[in-house]
Computed example of a mutant assay.
Amino acid sequence: MSTSYDPSGVHPVLGVDAGTTTLREADHLIRDLTTTLALPPGTVACTHLIRTDARRGTAVSLELPDRESAADAWRHLQESSAPQGDQEAAAQAAAEHTARRSGRAVLFPGAEHLTGTVTVADLLELTSIDRVIVVGATSGELPAPTTPVHTQDHVRPEWRDGELVLALVPAVGNTLAPFEVPNPTPCCADHG
């Protein structure tokens, strides 16, 4: 497991590469790190697609709420006996998260409120998601605050231009749902 530590920002960010290749594996890595590192409330954990000369796959970034918890997590990661990943991939994940240019948030403040169906207003008020967009909507068109969002217990906003943005799609009955579904069917599953 390679890590990169950038304590320069307001909130320290760690990049971790454990050799994961898919978003699903990276999601599981974040869940495992949440437990093994005892990540404190306020942590933002993201997945990143990595494309370097040495690596194609995914890495994760962990933005911790304070320097002490970041130093503890860093120390634990350095002492772990996990397989070594690519240092460049870990650094890339940390840099992208720190700049808030990219990263698919799996763990973020308020995520625990996004189960079942919630309104757009609650989604924005109870979480660290800055805004929502509706895929296919005309530019600037926003859903009404009372519009129901069927979370499917799987909400993955992304960093875009410094904001945590959730892409939504229209669903039945004038409702919305996250663009990313929890268990996508592989493209060629029916082609045998």
Score class of each variant (00 low, 15 high):
L77F: 01
S81Y: 05
E141P: 01
I30Q: 08
R56V: 15
A105W: 01
T175C: 01
C188D: 09
D17G: 08
G42K: 02
R67E: 15
P184Y: 05
L62K: 11
D17C: 14
F179K: 11
M1T: 14
L49W: 08
A26Y: 03
A73G: 09
H11S: 15
D153K: 04
P170M: 02
W74P: 05
P157T: 04
G136K: 01
L23E: 12
R156N: 00
E79R: 13
V60W: 08
E68F: 04
L64N: 06
H48N: 08
H97T: 15
A90W: 06
E158I: 09
T47G: 13
G57M: 01
F179P: 05
L142K: 15
L37G: 08
E88A: 15
A167Q: 14
P41W: 00
T22Q: 03
V165Y: 01
G15P: 12
H11L: 14
E63P: 00
V120I: 12
E79C: 09
R56E: 12
S69F: 00
R55Q: 11
P40E: 07
T58I: 01
D27T: 15
R101G: 09
L39Q: 05
P65A: 12
G9M: 10
T147Q: 11
G116C: 10
T20C: 10
F179A: 15
G110K: 06
G192F: 11
L166S: 08
H154L: 02
D153S: 12
H191E: 15
G103R: 02
G19V: 09
R131F: 01
D6R: 13
L62E: 10
L14T: 11
G42N: 07
E68D: 12
A82H: 06
V13I: 13
L77P: 11
Y5D: 00
V135F: 02
D72E: 10
P83D: 14
E163V: 08
A93M: 06
D130H: 05
D17K: 01
R104Q: 14
R131N: 05
L142V: 15
P7K: 02
H28F: 11
D17N: 13
A91R: 13
T21W: 10
R160K: 08
D53P: 11
A54G: 10
N183D: 12
D72C: 06
R56W: 07
H76G: 05
T43C: 09
T115E: 09
A26R: 08
T43E: 06
T119P: 13
V60I: 15
Q78T: 13
V10K: 00
F108G: 12
V181M: 10
I30Y: 03
L123Q: 06
D27G: 13
E125V: 07
E79M: 13
S61R: 04
L176K: 11
R104W: 02
V60F: 10
A45L: 03
L77K: 03
P40H: 04
L114M: 00
A111S: 15
A167Y: 11
A59Q: 08
R100F: 00
P148K: 10
